[in-house]
Computed example of a mutant assay.
Amino acid sequence: MTAVDFEHIAIRENGDPLTDLRSYPFDLCPSYFRRGLSPTSAMYVRHTVAEMLVGIQRDLAPLTFRIWDGYRPRSVQSNIYLHYLADLRAAHPEKEEAELRKEAEIFVTEPGDPRRIPPHATGGAVDLTLLDRAGHELDMGTAFDHFGPESAALYFEERSGDSLVRDNRRRLRDAMIGAGFRCDADEWWHFDFGNQIWAAHYKEPEAFYGEIGQRGQRP
């Protein structure tokens, strides 16, 4: 997740509740639970986001969504951030801590700053890919959470390379953006709706999804 500025965007919370994705026709693959970074396999997004995904999936049939992550509280965000930061320290012992933290924030929002709401903490962010009719993931060029330059949404648009990967990413990206989502520049799998980073991208004066839990909203 690119460390862009979005904290200045005002939030007018609209109260759209979280909804359990287990009641929807998606393939759910709770990545962070399986990696021991989340205490639950249950996955949630805002209700409107879930309904939008149903409509997109219908338009993309026979392809279906595989969803790796949706809403995550700051506690899980912290686990992911610290895990990635530890990997960076091990891989680059020569780098200063400040440099490592800056590099980590390219892909994972640092959860400790109360003024900066991680997009996933709003329930308006989702990480996903597409499955073919046989249930196989389309080739997107990298695995989920591959934290490297190849994960950039337009990596295969801007470089000569695998046209199949380019077209697969384009199909996912165009469908999501066409429905109103924001595509993250550094992560082809990450999309936002209604939160501050979405509002900043589309130059909206306000976001309508704030941090879940601030007013007793819990999954």
Score class of each variant (00 low, 15 high):
A50W: 06
A50Q: 05
A50D: 03
M52D: 10
M52E: 14
M52Q: 15
L53Y: 09
L53M: 12
L53E: 00
V54I: 11
V54A: 13
L60G: 05
L60S: 04
L60M: 13
L60P: 00
P62C: 04
L63C: 05
L63Y: 14
F65G: 01
R66A: 02
W68Y: 15
D69R: 06
D69H: 05
D69C: 02
G70W: 15
G70V: 03
Y71H: 13
R72Y: 08
R72I: 00
R72K: 14
P73F: 05
R74M: 00
S75V: 09
S75D: 13
S75N: 05
V76G: 09
V76N: 10
V76D: 12
Q77G: 15
N79R: 06
N79M: 05
N79V: 02
I80V: 12
Y81D: 07
Y81S: 06
L82C: 07
H83M: 06
H83N: 11
L85G: 11
A86E: 14
L88Q: 08
L88C: 01
A91W: 01
H92A: 06
H92D: 03
E94I: 03
E94F: 07
K95C: 07
K95D: 10
E96H: 11
E96C: 00
E97C: 04
E97V: 07
A98H: 12
A98R: 13
A98N: 07
E99L: 11
E99N: 04
E99F: 04
L100K: 14
R101N: 09
E103F: 07
A104C: 14
E105W: 02
F107S: 11
F107C: 03
F107R: 09
V108A: 03
D113W: 01
P114N: 09
R115K: 01
R115M: 01
I117A: 00
P118V: 04
P118E: 08
H120W: 07
A121R: 02
T122Y: 03
T122H: 00
G123H: 08
G123A: 01
G124S: 10
G124W: 13
A125W: 05
A125D: 04
V126L: 07
V126T: 07
D127H: 11
D127E: 14
L128M: 13
T129I: 03
L131E: 02
L131H: 05
L131F: 08
D132W: 14
R133S: 14
R133E: 15
R133I: 15
R133L: 15
A134D: 14
A134L: 07
G135N: 03
G135S: 02
